[in-house]
Nucleic acid binder design. Sequence first.
DNA 1: ATTACATATAACCAATTGGTTATATGTAAA
DNA 2: TTTACATATAACCAATTGGTTATATGTAAT
Lengths: 108, 108
Amino acid sequence: MPDVYRALGDSTRRRILNMLKQGNKSQKEIVEAFDISQPAIKKHLNILLEERIISESLNGKYRIYSLNLNILQFAYHEMLQYIEELLDDQLVSLKNYVEKGELRDEQD
Amino acid sequence: MPDVYRALGDSTRRRILNMLKQGNKSQKEIVEAFDISQPAIKKHLNILLEERIISESLNGKYRIYSLNLNILQFAYHEMLQYIEELLDDQLVSLKNYVEKGELRDEQD
DNA sequence: ATTACATATAACCAATTGGTTATATGTAAA
DNA sequence: TTTACATATAACCAATTGGTTATATGTAAT
């Protein structure tokens, strides 16, 4: 049971995930994209690994990170579901709103 | 920009929100529903207030808390959008994953 | 005015987090 | 086999979190 709130609860980690969305990246590439130290990045990567949002593999001296898209989707889905429960009735109209697209408030 | 990850990142706070979903509650009622101290509950309420997930009002000597549905709706909408982006950007690799990976539970 | 009760606040504690610097280790290239 | 580079790890720090107990404050009821 990965703690999605922990994993996604930091903006640096969310930025890392955005990077990995574009394709697998080495730790070096990730470190270079930020202004914080390599150990700091590594800690974020470790948290994402612990929560299984990303995977690690070795390529020579490089460590390659990749998104576990299915888990990330599941994570967001979990949060959405929780919020859905809170919203209850309001949700139906919201769902319609979202599915039909922004602000199409006029007749079809 | 309320930090919904922070707000929802604790199970006590999620339980409080579940309570408020059933209707507005006084702090006293909330405290009685948990096994932790009044100041601990108050801290959770403060975090939810900071992130504007709930509102506070005064009724005599009671403090009444209520859900901010609009903020939750906003968070919900944001997350949905993020998932859509995920799907768009990585459709190809997702397709590959599904085709070659664990989710291929049917024939060929 | 006193008392009782709901809430607020202060001081404390342990664990976690997000960062640092310094240094060790592993791998590749010279 | 050195050297260079990518990564890992250790020790440290400040801030935050989730809890505690003790006490102060505000409001209502007696």
